Computed example of a mutant assay.
Amino acid sequence: MTRLLTVCLGNYCRSPFAALALARRGGEAVQVRSAGLIGKWRGQPAHPAMVAAARRLGHDLTGHRAEQVSTQMLDWADTVLAMDGAVLETLRAISSDQQAAKLRLYLPDRDVPDPMGGAQEVFNDCVVLIEAATALHLP
């Protein structure tokens, strides 16, 4: 079984949806968790616009509650997928050598843009991009 951890800044928009999309694609062959670098939204549901965008693609994000990344999560994961370069750099700074070897960008050639502060269309575009990229990580 493959264990994936998706990480964004607050675990409020991108990483929760990425975890949900990867779990759906991978089925029983994968375990997926998500977390954020900061604990600002710890225990809170996903951003309402992200919940609405996820719903448009048939995903239910209403059960999500934000978590802050921990050493235990990094140890648990086989692969840690950072949603952007800044998140990746911070993860590298807080990781052991063994954990750092697991770190990757979610998209190999660019950041997943953070939709925070954007209109609903920005969130809609974000989930389409994230869902399409699940194929990069799972068959």
Score class of each variant (00 low, 15 high):
20 L>G: 05
49 A>I: 03
82 A>F: 02
130 I>A: 00
23 A>C: 10
35 A>F: 06
83 M>K: 06
47 H>C: 10
17 F>P: 08
58 G>T: 08
27 G>R: 12
113 P>T: 04
85 G>W: 09
77 A>Q: 05
119 A>Q: 14
39 G>H: 00
108 P>R: 13
111 D>I: 01
37 L>H: 07
19 A>Q: 13
138 L>I: 11
104 R>S: 09
7 V>P: 00
78 D>R: 08
24 R>W: 01
94 I>R: 12
71 T>H: 08
7 V>D: 00
73 M>N: 09
7 V>T: 05
29 A>C: 08
55 R>E: 04
5 L>F: 05
20 L>H: 03
77 A>F: 03
86 A>P: 07
133 A>N: 13
67 E>C: 09
65 R>A: 08
65 R>L: 02
73 M>R: 04
132 A>S: 10
11 N>I: 01
101 A>M: 12
5 L>R: 14
49 A>Q: 09
104 R>F: 02
125 D>F: 06
130 I>V: 00
97 D>R: 14
14 R>M: 12
125 D>V: 12
119 A>H: 09
66 A>D: 01
131 E>A: 12
65 R>D: 00
32 V>Q: 01
70 S>L: 12
23 A>G: 13
87 V>S: 12
32 V>N: 10
49 A>E: 11
90 T>L: 10
51 V>E: 05
3 R>G: 04
123 F>V: 00
139 P>M: 06
113 P>V: 05
15 S>D: 02
14 R>K: 11
36 G>M: 06
16 P>K: 02
67 E>I: 09
77 A>E: 04
4 L>K: 00
33 R>H: 05
77 A>G: 03
117 G>T: 03
137 H>A: 04
36 G>C: 01
62 T>H: 08
100 A>Y: 15
116 M>P: 12
93 A>C: 04
116 M>V: 15
28 E>T: 11
71 T>A: 13
117 G>H: 09
95 S>G: 11
118 G>N: 13
70 S>G: 10
115 P>N: 05
102 K>G: 03
69 V>R: 09
69 V>Y: 04
4 L>W: 07
31 Q>M: 09
18 A>Y: 01
69 V>N: 12
70 S>Y: 04
67 E>D: 10
135 A>D: 07
40 K>E: 13
60 D>N: 01
134 T>K: 03
93 A>H: 01
58 G>L: 15
21 A>R: 00
29 A>Y: 11
55 R>K: 07
123 F>K: 11
125 D>S: 04
30 V>M: 14
69 V>I: 12
30 V>I: 15
105 L>K: 09
28 E>S: 14
5 L>H: 10
27 G>E: 01
122 V>R: 06
56 R>I: 11
7 V>S: 00
55 R>Q: 07
36 G>R: 04
85 G>C: 03
40 K>H: 15
125 D>I: 11
19 A>H: 07
3 R>L: 06
40 K>N: 13
139 P>W: 05
12 Y>H: 06
96 S>H: 15
77 A>K: 08
31 Q>C: 02
17 F>A: 01
24 R>A: 02
12 Y>F: 15
73 M>C: 07
109 D>G: 02
17 F>R: 14
22 L>D: 03
26 G>V: 07
104 R>M: 07
42 R>F: 12
58 G>C: 06
108 P>H: 10
129 L>V: 09
98 Q>N: 13
93 A>S: 15
75 D>A: 14
45 P>E: 12
36 G>Q: 02
115 P>R: 05
92 R>N: 14
115 P>V: 04
125 D>T: 02
75 D>E: 09
72 Q>G: 12
